[in-house]
Amino acid sequence: MALDVTWAVKWLTMCAQAMAEHRLELIELDRAIGDSDHGENMDRGFQAVLDKLAESQPETPGAALKLTAMSLMSKVGGAAGPLYGTAFLRAATTLGDAPDISPAALAQALEAARDGVVARGKAEPGDKTMVDAWTPAVEAAGAASAAGANVLAVLVAAAEAAEEGAAATDPLIARKGRASYLGERSIGHRDPGAVSTALILRAAAGAAA
C-alpha cells in the first residue's frame, strides 16, 4: 500500500499494540540494566498517541508523526520520551505536507529520525542504546531505496536490520544512560531501547504489508 496517512495511523496503532504485547518483555529487559520502567512508559506513551489520533485526525503522514512526537514527549516521562519524540518530530519535519512517502523520502525520514536521537542522547553506535538499532536500519533502508526497492521492501529491510542491531547489543558494555552505571555487568543483556526501536520499525513494515 502507499505510505499515506491511512498507513501512518495503521502503523501507530500497530506500535501501540506491539508495546502492549511486549510490555512485560521490555520491563524485564529494563529491570536487568535500567530502572524497569521502559515497557510501562512506552505502553502508556503509545496509548496516548492513539487517543490523540482519534481526537485530531491528521491529514498527512507528517502531521500524524508530529502529533505522535508531542504525545510521546508528554506521556513517556523517562529518557525515551524526548528521544522518540525528537525522532518522530525530525521525521515529520522531513516529510512536510506530502500526502504520501516515496522510498527515497522514507530513507531520508529514517535518517533524520536517527540523527535526532543521536543529537538528543549523544550516543554513538556501540554504546548499547537504541542508536544500535536505528543506525543499521537507516543504512539498510538507504541501500534498499538506492537499489530501487519499493516502500514495503525498504521498511522490511529497516525492520530486519533493527532487529539484528538490537540482538547485537547483547555483548556490548553500556556507555550511555542508566545502564552505563553497571559497566561490565551490562554485558549479556539486550538493550530495551534498541528492542522498542525494532518493534516500532517492524510495525511500520507490518502496516505497509
Binding site: M70, M73, G77, G78, A79, G81, P82, L83, G85, T86, L89, R120, G121, G177, R178
Partner: peptide, 14 residues
C-alpha cells in the same frame, strides 16, 4: 538530571 536536560532541549527545538 538526565532526561530533564533532554526534555528541555527538545522543548527548545519545538
Amino acid at each position: 538530571l538526565g532526561s530533564a536536560v533532554m526534555t528541555a532541549e527538545a522543548a527548545i527545538e519545538f
